[in-house]
């Protein structure tokens, strides 16, 4: 058995933080992605502009820089906004919230394109039949459109999640105690750089394999109404 110099438990705790960070960012990113896609497909010009600026900016910025800008910049921005409302207590954005914001924004920008493609691929007839059945806009979206979008978007979203999982390592630079930072701490006290970075790599691989399993299960489930066998 390899000797982790007593840091094994710490690394597992780091893995938990990594998973929490990835899942929370996924949720934020999915919401942003749907909103972004809706904005891009809407007939209101300013909404389209905002969505386009959002996806262009985020997709052109290195994720590391996005994390750093959010971590150092968000508090200042939030405080000046809060100041407008006469609220001058200070607002704290921790490393976790900053990480979720940065990774969620990144995921959302790419997910916008995935959702847009999926929304566009739904035949017009589906909309028309829903309306013919007397469904309202919300009903139509929730019962007819969304389940189909989900099925079409899943493979793309699955890929994005794998990217997100690896991007969580970047948040270690702002002090969140994820796998990567725990590995750094272990290296600084044991000097075993190769060992701990390799262990970290294997932990990410395991998380990747598990995620791939979950995604393929979800894909199968989403397709169940469609084909047999």
């Amino acid at each position: 058995m390899i000797d982790l110099h007593g840091f094994g438990h710490q690394l597992l705790q780091g893995a938990l933080v990594t998973v929490e960070l990835a899942l929370a960012s996924l949720v934020v990113g999915l919401v942003l992605g749907l909103l972004g896609a809706a904005a891009k497909l809407s007939s209101i010009k300013p909404l389209q502009w905002i969505a386009n600026i959002y996806t262009t900016l985020i997709r052109g910025l290195p994720e590391l820089l996005t994390v750093l800008i959010i971590y150092f910049g968000a508090t200042t921005v939030l405080m000046s906004i809060a100041g407008l409302f006469g609220y001058d207590e200070y607002i704290e954005i921790g490393a976790f919230a900053a990480g979720v914001t940065a990774l969620g924004l990144t995921f959302g920008a790419y997910a916008t394109e995935v959702f847009r493609g999926a929304l566009q691929s739904i035949p017009k007839g589906q909309h028309e039949s829903a309306v013919a059945l007397g469904m309202g806009t919300f009903h139509k979206f929730y019962r007819i459109i969304l389940p189909q979008v989900w099925r079409i978007a899943l493979p793309g979203l699955g890929n994005l999640f794998l990217v997100l999982l690896k991007d969580t390592a970047l948040v270690s630079v702002v002090g969140l105690e994820d796998i990567m930072r725990k590995a750094n701490i272990a290296v600084s006290s044991t000097k075993e750089a190769f060992l701990f970075y390799l262990v970290a790599a294997i932990m990410y691989l395991v998380l990747t394999i598990v995620s791939m399993g979950v995604v393929s299960y979800l894909e199968k489930r989403a397709r169940r109404g469609l084909t047999r066998g």
Binding site: L23, A24, V27, V28, L30, E89, I91, I93, G94, A97
Partner: peptide, 23 residues
């Protein structure tokens, strides 16, 4: 898990993520 369940749950999650952002 369907997308709609995810969206419904997300409000909770986002809320939880932002509680870190309190004074």
């Amino acid at each position: 898990m369907k997308l709609k369940t995810i969206i419904m749950g997300s409000a909770l999650f986002v809320g939880a993520a932002l509680t870190g952002a309190s004074a």
